[in-house]
Amino acid sequence: MTPSTHHYCLITPCRDESAYARRTLESVTRQSIPPALWVIVDDGSTDATPDILADYASRFDYIRILRRDGSTQRRVGPGVVDAFYAGLDTINLDRFPFLCKLDLDLDLPPRYFEILIDRMYANPRLGTCSGKPYFPAPTNRDKSFAGPLISEACGDEMSVGMTKFYRTTCFKQINGFVRSVMWDGIDCHRCRMLGWIARSWDEPDLRFIHLRPMGASHRGILTGRARHGQGQYFMGTDPLYMLASATYRMTRRPYILGGAAMLVGYTHAMLTRHPRYDDPTFRRFLRNYQRQCLIKGKQTATQTLTPPPQ
């Protein structure tokens, strides 16, 4: 069977998301181009999440629920990717030109996937892309666009981890996601190594609400930022680039402490000789790219160091 040019598959790992699930489910089912298939992997929820998912699966035939045993401790990063692959293993990926790893704590604008698909067809080198996440300010109690929203300030040269929209051929060529805490950074850099473009846009029709701010660990946002710093060390991030990144994050909420926690996580991993991503070629590419970003700026470095497509 020849897949439709607009066929896309969503795979959503989730666990105990009853506070946000309906908001995400509503925003996806109201998309101008709905998914051909949406596999939601319930990774052992103990709250009302299974009941919410069952309700929507009974009303939308493209929603499929996969229930996993939740007896193991939650592992942010590797655990999410493990759940994603549990869903991926149930589908024939060749049926879908596009694939998206999607979180269950988002509120997407109605033309979100339509626009991303159009951008993919407009640029054959575009391998992965996304919109930009915003989170509600404390005064915005109903978490709507009517009140103040705060940008998570993600770089234009990356697709964001909570909604990774991929061209299937690119996803296969980079060998998918690594099962580590920096899976959502390594993938974009591997795209660049192989001549693909990773991109995100801060435009009104692509801005979405992240109901749980970036780096907000299930144990607290500072733990999440420290984990991010540890992940940067694992990935192979250059120390000077890490210092610059953490300094910038100190200007965002939570002020000072968020960036400081990133440095603590990175430094601790370095001093304790934490394992590193076992791909020396990748780490050399990453450090060269990051140093060029510091010298030339991200936009110029990205354009200069992305090789022609293979």
Score class of each variant (00 low, 15 high):
125 R>I: 00
125 R>G: 00
129 C>W: 00
129 C>R: 05
130 S>V: 09
131 G>N: 02
131 G>F: 05
132 K>L: 15
132 K>M: 10
133 P>I: 11
134 Y>H: 09
135 F>S: 05
135 F>D: 00
136 P>M: 00
137 A>T: 07
137 A>L: 10
137 A>V: 10
140 N>K: 09
140 N>L: 04
141 R>A: 04
141 R>M: 05
141 R>V: 08
142 D>P: 05
143 K>G: 02
144 S>P: 05
145 F>N: 01
146 A>G: 14
146 A>L: 08
149 L>N: 00
149 L>C: 07
150 I>V: 14
151 S>H: 07
152 E>N: 13
152 E>K: 03
155 G>K: 10
156 D>H: 12
158 M>E: 11
158 M>F: 15
159 S>Y: 03
160 V>H: 05
160 V>T: 14
161 G>E: 06
162 M>R: 03
163 T>H: 13
163 T>F: 09
163 T>G: 04
165 F>Q: 12
166 Y>G: 02
166 Y>V: 11
167 R>W: 08
167 R>F: 07
168 T>C: 09
168 T>P: 01
169 T>P: 03
170 C>P: 08
170 C>K: 07
173 Q>T: 12
173 Q>E: 12
173 Q>L: 13
174 I>F: 06
174 I>R: 02
174 I>C: 09
175 N>A: 14
176 G>L: 03
179 R>H: 12
179 R>P: 01
180 S>E: 13
181 V>K: 08
181 V>W: 04
181 V>E: 04
182 M>W: 04
185 G>T: 14
186 I>Y: 08
186 I>G: 01
187 D>T: 07
187 D>W: 05
190 R>K: 14
191 C>S: 07
192 R>Y: 10
192 R>T: 03
192 R>F: 10
193 M>G: 08
194 L>G: 09
194 L>E: 02
195 G>P: 09
196 W>E: 02
197 I>H: 05
197 I>P: 01
197 I>V: 15
198 A>C: 13
200 S>W: 07
201 W>L: 12
201 W>C: 04
202 D>I: 04
205 D>T: 00
206 L>T: 00
207 R>F: 01
207 R>N: 08
208 F>E: 06
208 F>P: 05
208 F>K: 09
209 I>W: 01
209 I>Q: 04
209 I>P: 05
209 I>C: 03
209 I>R: 06
210 H>C: 00
211 L>C: 06
211 L>N: 07
211 L>D: 02
211 L>K: 02
212 R>S: 11
212 R>L: 01
214 M>N: 12
214 M>W: 15
214 M>E: 14
215 G>F: 09
216 A>S: 15
217 S>A: 15
218 H>T: 15
218 H>D: 15
218 H>C: 12
219 R>D: 13
219 R>C: 14
221 I>W: 09
221 I>T: 13
222 L>Q: 13
223 T>A: 14
223 T>Y: 12
224 G>E: 02
225 R>S: 02
225 R>W: 11
226 A>G: 10
227 R>I: 10
227 R>H: 11
228 H>L: 12
228 H>I: 09
228 H>D: 03
232 Q>I: 01
233 Y>A: 07
233 Y>D: 08
234 F>G: 00
234 F>L: 05
235 M>G: 04
236 G>Y: 07
